[in-house]
Design a protein around this nucleic acid. Sequence first.
DNA 1: AGTTGATCATTA
DNA 2: TAATGATCAACT
Length: 225
Amino acid sequence: MIKPASKPPATIQALFERAESIAGFTLGELAEVANIRVPQNFKKEKGWSGQLLELFLGADAGSTPQQDFPTLGVELKTIPIDQMGKPLETTYVCYAPLTNIAGINWQQSSVRNKLNCVLWIPIEGNRQIPPADRRIANPVLWYPSDQELAELQQDWEELMDMIALGQVENITARTGAVLQIRPKAADGSALTDAIGANGQRIQTRPRGFYLRKQFTGRILEEYFS
DNA sequence: AGTTGATCATTA
DNA sequence: TAATGATCAACT
């Protein structure tokens, strides 16, 4: 019988087997076991699915800039998919640093660290399906290929160069082939420090890195059978 | 205010 | 209809 994890798995294999054991269940079935109520929609509790899966897979609760399973070096990501198994949403990676970025390189970046190894949990995400009825699909354990890393690095460097040169206000979600930057905040009133066009300090909306759907779709496709 | 978990909803 | 820009909740 499925149940919430009491502690983090000791190995990646154990983590993956745990993920496999909940594939096929609905979010409602998991929530019932955990005695958690299921929202009618995700208009407000947008991170509900991710937190439910953290509970069942034994991820350390709490928000830290580190990976979900630090000792395993694994990041957990739920991803909403359509009937064809294609992503319905982009995937948030981490905050985009807007100041003190001198000396940051790709190999040591938060993006590179977060994406070193990702356990993807696809979940039916069509809005016509009530959250309780959405079914969990087979997990995918992803280590980025050399080519994928090269694609990510190229976008990351372009975006970070723009930030360093005071062009953060000129970055839109259209910049970047596989990695994009978009606002990431409670609302439009949130402001943080950034570098201006003349090197001065300016205030701007906090930003986050996101993976495009086309990119994550390729990842899931490789394991689809 | 920052960072995690993300999806919503308006626009193009 | 898909993508961009905006937003929601919990926790630190």
